[in-house]
């Protein structure tokens, strides 16, 4: 499948200006590296979520792809065109939709906003008169088209921003936290809209920056995990979880006293963490929680060890690690 977005070793550093000294002695300014050699490949028509905690570099990466920020090193190709030096050659093939509500002109109506931006996108009058009502309808703002944007709710502003992004019928849409300021119901509506209208109907290649794992799983085929400026994984949700954690979590329900066996189980190869609860809160009796290497051979070894120590095993369950838990684990380990 052809690649919509391809980046190679993209590095971005921002200068740290924390004192007057940094302004005066500007050549001595320190830099902080916010993107550390990003290699990302997004095939055409695929929806990818760019996940990561605040400050991971998600917005910076989107802005670099959009040409609003220039990379310090690396190479960026959009649909086969080198755009490393900015987005001037893109001609509307890619659109960046900011989560910034203020990027709209608040004292104009929704329709007037689209008119201004459609003109600046060099759409002819006939194209505008066809496309603007179509887009207002698509984002469900036809009834509110004459209202000033400052009277819109956050969700309406976000939908108008998306409509503005779609004026050029882009092949690639970069969406930056589209549900950041929405309540749960509004966020769910936005997800439905993005999935049915943008992904399924228009077949747009989507790169969505978010820190909401539920949103990522609902909307996207793949997730790319950005952590402290590094791309840690890029794959399907289940593959990304194994890549991030590299371990499995198991619960072994036991009968009899396990205390004596805990230390020796911890010493077994591939065992990272052992917790013993003599009286589990769910009323199922004593239980061992283990964090162990993802390997089929580990858990039988542990069971064998327990049996040899005189401990009965009443049941074994593998705990499904969610994407959120995996990212949280990654942040905990590395921060």
């Amino acid at each position: 499948m052809a690649l919509a977005i391809e980046t190679e070793n993209v590095v971005k550093r921002f200068p740290v200006t924390s004192s007057y000294r940094d302004i005066v002695l500007f050549w001595k300014r320190r830099n902080v590296e916010v993107l550390k050699g990003i290699d990302l490949r997004v095939p055409s028509g695929e929806a990818t979520a760019l996940l990561g905690p605040n400050g991971a570099g998600k917005t910076t990466l989107l802005k670099v792809l959009a040409g609003l920020i220039l990379p310090d090193e690396g190479y960026i190709e959009i649909q086969g065109t080198d755009v490393t030096d900015g987005a001037s050659t893109l001609n509307g093939r890619l659109t960046y939709v900011s989560n910034e509500e203020r990027s709209l002109i608040w004292r104009l109506s929704g329709e007037e906003n689209l008119k201004v931006f459609a003109t600046l996108q060099h759409l002819s009058r006939s194209e505008q008169s066809r496309l603007i009502p179509e887009l207002l309808d698509l984002v469900g703002l036809t009834e509110h088209k004459d209202r000033l944007v400052m009277r819109y709710s956050s969700g309406m502003k976000q939908r108008l921003a998306i409509a503005r992004g779609l004026l050029v019928r882009p092949d690639i849409l970069l969406l930056d936290e589209p549900t950041r300021s929405l309540d749960p119901a509004g966020a769910r509506q936005m997800w439905e809209f993005i999935r049915s209208e943008l992904i399924q109907k228009l077949g747009t290649t989507l790169l969505l920056a978010t820190h909401n794992t539920e949103e990522a799983a609902f909307l996207c085929d793949k997730v790319a995990i950005l952590h402290l400026g590094e791309l840690r994984a890029h794959d399907t949700v289940s593959n990304v979880i194994s890549q991030l954690t590299g371990t499995d979590r198991w619960v072994i329900r036991t009968t009899g006293n396990v205390n004596g066996a805990v230390a020796s189980i911890s010493a077994l190869p591939g065992i990272h963490e052992v917790n013993y609860e003599p009286d589990a809160r769910d009323g199922t009796g004593p239980r061992l929680e283990l964090n162990i290497d993802s390997s089929e051979e580990r858990i039988p070894l542990v069971v064998q060890h327990l049996v040899n120590s005189g401990v009965g095993v009443a049941g074994i369950d593998k705990v499904e690690i969610s994407l959120g838990m995996a990212i949280e684990q990654l942040s905990r380990v590395e921060n």
């Binding site: 959009a66 600046l120 996108q121 060099h122």
Partner: peptide
């Protein structure tokens, strides 16, 4: 007002 990036992202 926050419109600069959006304006710069047009074909103008």
């Amino acid at each position: 007002t926050g419109t600069l990036e959006a304006l710069l992202f047009t074909r103008s």
